[in-house]
Every structure is written in C-alpha cells, then in structure tokens.
C-alpha cells in the first residue's frame, strides 16, 4: 500500500536502480525457495524410485531413474494399516480440536467480557502453562494416566471411553492432554480477540435481559468465527503433528496416530529409503493439503496469537 503512494515521487534513475535491486531480490528469493523446497521435492522423487535402481547405480541416489512408479506407495499402503493410522489421527484430532475451541472460547469470553478479580491471573496460568516443555510434566503425567478409575462410579462416562480402566493407551487420554495444552494458547488468542469486539453489543443485550450463555452463544461466538476458523486450522496441524504425546501415552502400536506410527514402523523401513520417502509423503499429505487450501486462515491464526502481546 505504501509502495503505490511513494511510486510517483521516484525519479527515473531511482526506478532503474529499484528494478535492478528487485531482480537481485528475486534471484535471492528463488535460490532460497529452491533450497527450501528441495528436501520435500527430493522425498517425492525418492518415493517414486525403485530401490534396486538406486543400488545398481554407482552414483547411488544421485542419479536419474530408469523408471518411476507408485509402487512404493502401494507397498506401504498394502503392508501397513495406513487407513487405520489416519483414522486414529482423526479420532484424536477432531474431538480435541472441537473441545479446545469450545472450552477456550468460553474461558476467553468469561475473562474478557466480565471483570473478575482474577482475570489476569487466570490468563497467566493458561498462557504460561502452554509454554512449558511437555517433558517437564511427562513423568508424573504418565503415572496419573495409569491410575485406574474403573472402580469409581463417579465417572461412568470415562469407563465407556476406555477399554482398560485408565486413560493411558486411550484416545480419550490423548484428547485430554491435547485439549488441555492447546486451551492455554487458544484462550489467550481468543480473549485478545474478544477484547477488540465492541462492548456495546454485550451491554445492550444485557439491558434486554439476555443471560450469559445467550450472549456467549448468540453474540460472541458468531463474531469470533474468523478467529475460530484460523485457530482450527492451526490446531489441526499441531495436533496432527504431535509426536511426543502419542509416543509416550500409547502402548498399542495400532492405536498410534500417523506420525508416531511412522516411527513405530521405521525399523522395518530403514534399509529402503524409497519406502521411507513414500511413507513420509503419505503422512505429510493431509497437513500440506489443509495448509494449501486454507492458507489464509492458517497465517491469520498465527498472527492472531502474536499481534497482541
């Protein structure tokens, strides 16, 4: 925007110099873009090659292929239950995402629209907790997850969601920790967002006698749609990409989501880099597709978190 304003004031000499520097910038960015794209492009290339082809070539992988095929993909797909891993990821990611947005929007609403003595403290507890490295809490959390609740009649819902009387090695356990951790971040973002919304609406509604829940549901949530959409995109990627929790809090190989399952399979893959590449690409596809389709939300989600601080 500033560029158009200034353009008229430039001399021809300046314009020529600017064009030159612009070309230089393009060269710089193109080279860098290629370097950035290279590892993924190479993984894609490897995934289409045949291992025998690479071994037979004296230059190894630094060579042109005799054939390219999707064989590695069919091999991976047929040898390992990838559909199941994608499903596991979905079973964890989607509920965690919805719960996180629901809970954090409620908390953010309550602390940004109403004055409490402890507003700031609550916000700080959430924000600071979100920044802790997960390894700090893993030891006791692991123990906590292994406490059995099967004999506690107080939480009958839990016992239906767990097949071993604990939340260890259960989808519900992973959903819980993701929701908890991410609620910290989302509450912070949403409360900032809500502060920018007009207060008059809420006040007018209250004058009309609307209850707290009505205001939250009917006024605030619709207004927050852009922020919620942006956060949803981010959360999808973060939860999908989680490796640590899935590795630590699951014992069953076939319950693991795709990123952790990949590690589980790596022992069998590693002699054949073409198969590693195919499996990696398959694991990368969902987030990359979501990113490419919803790029706008993605970027605005990240900026929401940082614009105010």
């Amino acid at each position: 925007m500033s560029v158009t304003v200034m353009a008229g004031q430039r001399t021809t000499h300046n314009r020529a110099r600017r064009r030159l520097s612009r070309v230089g910038l393009h060269i710089f960015l193109s080279v860098l873009a290629f370097i950035f794209a290279w590892p993924l492009l190479y993984a894609l290339y490897m995934s289409l090659r045949r291992y025998g082809d690479i071994v037979a070539n004296p230059n190894g992988p630094f060579s042109l292929p005799s054939t390219l095929s999707l064989d590695n993909y069919t091999f991976v797909w047929n040898s390992y239950p990838f559909l199941g891993y994608y499903w596991n990821t979905a079973v964890i990611t989607i509920p965690a995402l919805i719960l996180t947005l629901w809970i954090s929007s409620m908390v953010a609403f309550a602390i940004s629209k109403y004055s409490w003595r402890f507003n700031l403290l609550v916000l700080m507890i959430f924000t600071a907790g979100n920044l802790l490295p997960p390894q700090v809490i893993i030891v006791p959390l692991f123990r906590l997850y292994n406490l059995t609740f099967a004999n506690l009649p107080a939480i009958p819902v839990l016992s239906q969601l767990s097949d071993n009387g604990r939340i260890y090695d259960q989808f519900i356990g992973l959903i819980l920790i993701h929701t908890t951790f991410q609620t910290g971040f989302c509450t912070f973002v949403l409360s900032n967002y809500m502060k920018t919304l007009s207060k008059e609406l809420v006040e007018a509604a209250m004058m009309d006698g609307a209850g707290v829940f009505t205001i939250y549901r009917r006024i605030i949530l619709p207004l927050c749609t852009p922020a919620l959409a942006a956060l949803a995109t981010l959360l999808f990627t973060w939860i999908y990409n989680d490796f640590f929790w899935a590795l630590m809090l699951f014992k069953s190989g076939d319950k693991r989501p795709i990123t952790a399952a990949l590690n589980n399979l790596s022992g069998q893959f590693f002699t054949d880099p073409t198969v590693v590449a195919a499996a990696s690409i398959m694991a990368a596809i969902p987030t990359v597709v979501v990113y490419l389709l919803l790029q706008r939300y993605f970027v605005s989600g990240l900026t929401l978190g940082s614009a105010k601080g």
């Binding site: 950035f36 590892p39 993924l40 694991a283 987030t287 790029q295």
Partner: peptide
Amino acid sequence: YQTIFFTPVVLSLALVGFIWELQ
C-alpha cells in the same frame, strides 16, 4: 515464495527428521 517458505512449518518435526535423513 511465502507458500514455499512456510510449507515446512506444517510438517511435524518427526516428519522433518525422516525427510532430512534422506539427505
């Protein structure tokens, strides 16, 4: 450019590990 520079961010770090091991 922005799309290319940002794509690695949407990959999990575990996947980043696998992809770079190929290199």
